[in-house]
């Protein structure tokens, strides 16, 4: 028999799955890592594109 009253149970079911602090920390760290990874890839692909375009872009005189 649950110790929770009907009001508590209704509130919990609306909240869905409640993450533990450890799961919250893990998710936040993973999100930050994915963000940094995607940013790095975007910068890398941009730079590679510029280099591959060759002299007309990378070696132009300024």
């Amino acid at each position: 028999m649950s110790d929770k009253g009907p009001k508590d149970e209704a509130q919990s079911s609306q909240q869905g799955i409640v993450l533990t602090p450890e799961q919250m920390r893990g998710r936040r760290a993973r999100n930050i890592a994915i963000g940094l990874g995607v940013t790095f890839l975007a910068v890398l692909f941009y730079a590679v594109t510029i280099v591959r375009l060759g002299g007309a872009v990378a070696n132009r005189s300024i």
Binding site: I17, T20, Q23, G26, A29, A33
Partner: peptide
Amino acid sequence: TTPKLPVAAP
């Protein structure tokens, strides 16, 4: 019935 949620760090 609870889905196994990841705790993995990067």
